[in-house]
Design a protein around this nucleic acid. Structure first.
Lengths: 322, 322
DNA sequence: CGGCAGTCATGCCCTTTGGCTATGACCTCC
DNA sequence: GGAGGTCATAGCCAAAGGGCATGACTGCCG
């Protein structure tokens, strides 16, 4: 029954709200007015709601329509990310600017960056290769890509690097989990003692965690499950599989609306820098330099301390060396 | 040309990644295997990418497929919010639990809450009415709804209330804006002197801002544009219209990926409580109590300090009374 | 070695969808 | 009272998308 609403109808709805007329919205989408009319009717029937108030001189969204349009915009925004992302993947070969990004960066940030770059330079073809942090240096040295983004704890040797954003790994659990009722931060010992949902070895996220644990004098984490993408980890946590350590970037929205809860940990520093890296001989010019500028503008340290992880502020002091 | 990908195909892609087989995924969607095969081919052709690696014994996602599946999940997640939201809007009349929420709460939080409630109580029909903070008390008193959510600065008189989440208004600008290059927090005087994109009067967001400015000894804000929903305000800022004061909840994702930048302000307290309210005579029982429990679990004060607004931590001290 | 249980692709048929054009009803302003 | 705007409806048609039947290939196991 469900019959998911199609994105073009959602866009039409949003547009109707913006321009205040059904035929106007139709024109902007390159449709005729009757098509738009029918489409909107179908959408309303499917959702079982009256979304627009049709008058003889224009159409307004109803209250329900405004609410749905809001949700629709969120859908469309993600859809746009998907589109710019796929376009970048597609032009991998013959792009003017070839970029390699680790999974987390590719999933959460790259579409936005590329989208913004292409807003000022629409003719620029950007090719994106998504891979593991480990392989980015090789791609750069071989000249397969011009610019890379890594999330590993240290900048790779022999490459120029510049921090473009700061990220933080968070311990997250599903809303009902016992850890959400703790009044004190988790200790490192408690963290390593618990079976965790983790990214696989070799991923930047896992590397960061392993190294931070070593620095804090703790051993290896105990994998309950190892998964190949941040989203997969996130899903497992939401499904109640167990706690996970995951990038703040990947779960920002879930924390905001409470699908996930972050748990403070003390005695360990889980912050990390996301870096742009490139072959150190070269000077960055042209498209690569422009993209780097975009990332620097966007990734201002402004937005870093976003997720102070709890009533217990995350420990800024370095963990005690044992 | 663009031809947006349809959500069911995206879901199919994600499912293929999860179950590792095209026919298996088809079965879960209630499709036959040939249909799924064709659908996936169409999706690949539309996106211009090879997404799955078909072998004779199962199918795996390619690297590109994994990336696209990640973006697809974000789309589907928002779509799910839209669906639970519309379902709640639809059952407004004959619901077992009737809820009224202000715009911001309805847009950002309500779908998540209702979705979670319905995960444990699938048979429960929840009706959602989205309205202005001002009108919630009247709806409660008339018995039209059982539970309300408001974002106004003070709890309405004569109603029982409980804080369910904490929110904060942020000053946000587009990435290139001069304010992003400031090294010192904005003063209240500078804020009121600048023309701002604002919500309309009567909205909880506007009320909060107006009152906070009064408390800080400043005058009225200067509206550059007044818009009726948080998303509309957000769009205007992204489009470069000007700075806005807007709920952190509405722009969390944009801050995370750098589409927007928040600017620290000193001398004013823009935090606010989101409250559940209900007719004070009644004791909350049944569905209403359950929903309240969900909101309390999810809205743990854990997640509050998420957006410390900058290199300059937001001032926790109350603004100096003039 | 020869079934059997899996996988996926293809070809054919049919229903539904969604676009267009043409037309009509209604409002408002000149 | 026409002109220019809104929207809805009807009829037509192409394309999309579903199902069934079938074929090709792999791997397992008797």
């Amino acid at each position: 029954m469900s019959q998911l609403p199609d994105p073009e109808s959602l866009r039409l709805l949003v547009l109707v709200g913006d321009v205040g007329s059904l035929s106007g919205a139709a024109a902007q989408l390159g449709l005729t007015q009757p098509s738009a009319s029918k489409r909107l009717s179908v959408l309303e029937r499917r959702l079982g709601l009256v979304l627009v108030d049709r008058t003889r001189r224009g159409s307004q969204l109803t209250d329900a329509g405004r609410a749905v349009a809001g949700w629709a915009q969120r859908v469309l925004q993600e859809m746009e990310g998907l589109l710019t992302g796929t376009e970048a993947l597609r032009t991998k070969r013959d792009a003017e600017l070839r970029v390699a990004a680790s999974m987390t960066v590719a999933e959460c940030l790259a579409p936005g960056w590329i989208g913004e770059l292409r807003r000022t330079r629409p003719e620029l073809y950007v090719g994106l290769q998504v891979t593991n942090s480990e392989q980015v240096p090789a791609l750069l040295r071989s000249g397969a890509v011009d610019l890379g983004f890594v999330e590993s704890p240290r900048a790779p040797a022999g490459l120029s690097a510049r921090q473009v954003a700061r990220d933080r790994l968070l311990v997250v659990v599903a809303p009902g989990h016992p850890w959400t009722r703790r009044r004190r931060p988790l200790s490192v010992a408690e963290l390593v003692a618990a079976p965790l949902v983790l990214r696989e070895r070799g991923s930047g996220t896992r590397e960061t965690l392993d190294q931070a644990l070593r620095k804090a004098g703790a051993g290896e984490p105990l994998p309950l499950l190892e998964l190949g993408s941040a989203t997969a980890v996130r899903n497992a946590v939401i499904a109640g599989t167990g706690p996970a350590v995951i990038s703040e970037l990947a779960v920002g929205a879930d924390l905001a609306d409470g699908r996930l809860v972050s748990v403070a940990v003390e005695g360990i520093d889980l912050r990390r820098d996301l870096r742009a890296v490139w072959a150190s001989g070269r000077v960055l010019v042209g498209p690569a330099a422009e993209l780097l500028a975009v990332t620097r503008r966007r990734g201002k340290r402004d937005r870093v301390p976003r997720a102070a992880t709890g009533p217990h502020p995350a420990p800024p002091q370095p963990p005690p060396s044992p």
